[in-house]
Simulated assay, not measured.
Amino acid sequence: MIYMLIFVLIAGLLSVITITGVGQIRNNMFLKYNASYTSADIENPAIIYNMKDFNTDYSYKDQQIIKLCSFLDSWSILIFFGLATLLASWLFYHNKLKQPIRTLREASQKISGNDLNFHIPQASEDEMGQLCGSFERMRAALEDNNRQMWRSIEDRKQLNAAFSHDLRTPLTVLRGYADFLNKYLPEDKISKEKLLDTISTMSTHILRLENYVQIMGEAQKLDDISVAWTKVEVSVFLEQLSSLAEFLAREQSLELSFENHISEPSLYLDTGMVTRIYENLIANSLRYASQTISVRFEMDEGFFSITVSDDGKGFSSQDLKLATTPFYTSRTEAEESHYGMGLNICKVLAEKLGGGIQLTNHKSGGACVKVWIMLHQS
Rank of each mutant, 00 (worst) to 15 (best):
G129F: 08
I293A: 08
M51F: 01
R276D: 15
R287T: 05
S76E: 06
S15E: 06
V22L: 03
V173N: 14
E298D: 15
P326V: 12
S200K: 14
T292L: 09
E154T: 04
V371S: 05
T198S: 15
M138H: 04
L97H: 06
S266W: 05
G356T: 07
I293M: 14
K32M: 08
L181S: 04
R147L: 13
F7Y: 07
M374Q: 15
N280M: 12
S15F: 09
L181E: 09
T172G: 14
Y278T: 00
V369I: 15
N344H: 13
T329H: 03
V308F: 02
I101K: 04
D155W: 02
I306H: 01
F54P: 03
L72G: 04
S76P: 10
I66G: 03
D224Q: 14
G12P: 00
A283W: 01
S112L: 12
E127L: 15
W372S: 14
G356E: 05
F163T: 05
T38H: 06
I111W: 02
G272W: 06
V213F: 07
D155S: 11
S316F: 05
W90P: 01
D57I: 00
A162G: 15
H165I: 01
D179G: 09
N280H: 15
V16S: 07
S378F: 04
Y3W: 10
Y268M: 13
M299W: 05
N280V: 05
I345G: 02
I42T: 07
V16H: 01
L83F: 15
G355K: 00
L78M: 05
N117E: 10
L343F: 07
K352L: 14
N160K: 04
A249Y: 02
L269W: 12
F80I: 02
M149W: 03
L171Y: 06
M273N: 09
G356F: 08
T38Q: 06
S36G: 02
G354V: 13
V232H: 04
V308N: 13
S330C: 02
K96M: 12
Y288P: 01
E279I: 15
R139I: 00
G21S: 14
M216W: 03
M374T: 06
L349S: 05
D53N: 15
Q318W: 04
F80P: 08
N344F: 13
L209A: 03
T307C: 07
K96I: 12
K363I: 00
E246H: 11
S242I: 03
